[in-house]
Simulated scan of single mutants.
Amino acid sequence: MKKASLFIGVLALIGLTIYFLSDPYLFTSAETLYAIGVEKSDEGTDVINTEELEVAAEFFERAISKGFKERTVFDKLGRAYAHTADNATQEEMYSRALKEYPDDFEFLFRRAESRMEQHKYKPTLEDYDKVVKLGSHSEYINHALYGRGAAWYLLGDTANAAKDFNALTRLTGNEWRDYEDYSKRFQ
């Protein structure tokens, strides 16, 4: 009985050793994992290589799990996921990013977009509303106003949709696609 227990213990130790040694990045620093992810993400090229972006996303996720939570890692992960992951995965990632950077209007905007694609209109409204309030100077304001109005429209609140649409056209002086036409893509 004693020999069997010792044998099982040795086998378990060997198994754990093999498991830990099978991950070549187990002891790699978060910063290095991030740098490898950047290298794999093919930034600066005109070609989108989804296989490399998936690998890059894995390295960015590893870096985050090891405590590397600079804004750039979430930004690059979001860009990789935009080409490789579904909207639910993107929403979850931007929610994690917003825990670290709660007033980041780009992260709020991107999460709103992923929520809109999932037909989650009430949470979409909340995110777009924050973008409008935080980022009146940002490049996202026009699209946030339009997206918020579209979410209102899809929820059946045409009065608030019209307010956003009118504010948008006053702000930009441009013509925008009407919500009735735009909403067809969500039906």
Rank of each mutant, 00 (worst) to 15 (best):
S5Y: 03
S5K: 14
F7T: 14
F7C: 10
F7P: 00
I8G: 06
I8M: 12
G9V: 04
A12M: 07
L13P: 05
G15Y: 03
L16E: 05
L16N: 05
Y19W: 09
F20I: 14
F20G: 10
L21W: 09
L21G: 07
L21I: 09
S22Y: 08
S22V: 06
P24M: 02
Y25Q: 04
F27S: 13
F27Q: 13
F27P: 01
T28V: 13
T28C: 12
S29W: 00
A35E: 11
A35L: 12
V38Y: 13
E39L: 07
K40M: 11
S41C: 11
G44L: 07
T45F: 11
T45Q: 15
V47A: 09
V47P: 14
N49H: 14
E51R: 10
L53C: 05
L53S: 04
E54Q: 13
V55D: 09
A57L: 14
A57K: 03
E61A: 08
E61C: 07
R62V: 00
R62F: 01
A63Q: 06
I64C: 03
I64K: 01
K66H: 12
G67M: 03
R71H: 14
V73I: 15
D75N: 09
D75R: 06
L77W: 02
G78Y: 00
A80N: 03
A80V: 04
Y81H: 02
Y81P: 02
A82P: 02
D86Q: 04
N87Q: 10
N87R: 01
N87E: 12
T89K: 15
E91S: 14
E92G: 02
Y94P: 01
S95R: 08
S95Q: 08
A97I: 01
L98I: 09
E100I: 06
F105T: 06
F105G: 01
E106L: 09
L108I: 07
E113N: 13
S114P: 09
R115H: 05
M116K: 15
M116T: 14
E117P: 01
E117I: 00
K122N: 12
P123N: 03
L125Q: 00
L125N: 00
E126H: 11
V131Q: 02
V132A: 07
